[in-house]
Every structure is written in C-alpha cells, then in structure tokens.
Computed example of a mutant assay.
Amino acid sequence: MAEGTKLLSKNRRAFHEYHILERYECGIMLAGTEVKSMKSGKYSFVDSYARIKNNELWLVGLHITPYDHGNIHNHEPVRDRKLLVNRDELTKLVRKTDEKGLTLVPLSFYLKGGLVKMELGVCRGKKLHDKRASIKEKDLKRQSEREMRGRI
C-alpha cells in the first residue's frame, strides 16, 4: 500500500482459496451514503466478484448496509456497482477472463485521497492439496520466526 492510503478491509478468504495472478486498482461508483457506510466498516464482500457486461466492469454481490443517519434517499444494500478502470486495463481483463478458470475477485478495499478504491485480483482457484501446502508453508514460516525470536 502506498503512503496516504488507509486499509478498510482485506479479503483473507480470497488469498486462501485462489492463486492471485495479477492485481489491479479500481475505483467504485458509490452513492454518498454508501461511502459513509464503507468508511464506518459496515459492508461485506464475502461472495462478491467482478464481471464484464457491455464492455464495462461491474462488481456483483457487495453488500453495503444502509447508513444509520440516512434519510429516505438511502441506497439499496445489494446492487451491482460499476468499477472504474483504464480502457487498456479493461481490454486486458476481458482477455484474461475469456481464459478458462480465471475469475475477478476483490482483494481489498481502501481509502486513497478520500476516495474508496478496490484492489481487484485476476485469480485461479486452488485445489485442496494447494490449500494444504500453503497452510503448511505458513505454519513452518511462523515456527521458524518463533525460534529466531527465542534465540535473540
């Protein structure tokens, strides 16, 4: 993360279930009350993913809780939200998603210059043995760090 950014949340499940091949930074078109709800951390992106419709990038399945102090013009909790990317990046994403087995998964949400941004990953699903190997690797790394701390 660059300086001047504040991490709102990270999709830890995506790192466990997918191999992340590429990462892209996207802006999100949000209503005013949606931004306030996201800044207060009242959203869930567990089953969300991105898809390309009519040569535009859309985020599907993001649930943003309606703002507590909002009025009758509050937003819908679950709706498709447009993602803002560069035209060149969009053509790359179209080519990548045409490949078999690749999906677009949100990896993290953060604030950058007062705007809500999202890190989008081009991912391939892990098999069960890949998940076990990554858990084993993580445990070995944690154990070696403990031993190094104990020796100092």
Rank of each mutant, 00 (worst) to 15 (best):
L120F: 03
G125A: 12
S134D: 09
L140R: 14
I135F: 11
L115D: 01
C123H: 06
G101S: 10
F109P: 00
R124V: 14
G113L: 03
M118G: 04
L102I: 13
L111D: 06
M118N: 02
F109N: 05
G101L: 10
G114L: 10
L115M: 14
S134G: 08
V122T: 07
M118F: 00
V116M: 03
L104S: 10
G121V: 09
K131W: 09
S134N: 07
L102M: 14
K117N: 05
M118C: 01
C123T: 04
M118Y: 02
G121T: 08
Y110G: 05
S108K: 15
G114T: 00
L111K: 01
E137T: 09
L111W: 00
K136E: 02
F109I: 00
G121H: 12
K127W: 05
G121W: 13
L120N: 10
G114S: 12
E137W: 04
F109S: 02
S134P: 11
S108T: 11
R124M: 15
V105A: 07
L111S: 01
G121L: 12
K126G: 08
I135S: 13
F109H: 09
A133S: 06
R132K: 12
M118R: 05
D139S: 07
D139P: 05
D130R: 14
V105I: 15
T103R: 15
G114A: 12
F109C: 02
M118V: 05
L120R: 05
V122D: 04
D139N: 08
D130W: 06
L102A: 11
K126F: 03
Y110T: 02
L104V: 13
L140P: 07
L111M: 12
G101A: 09
G114I: 06
G114K: 08
K131Q: 15
L107D: 13
T103I: 14
L120C: 11
T103S: 15
T103Q: 13
L107S: 12
S108E: 15
D130M: 15
V122R: 08
G121M: 12
K138W: 07
L107F: 13
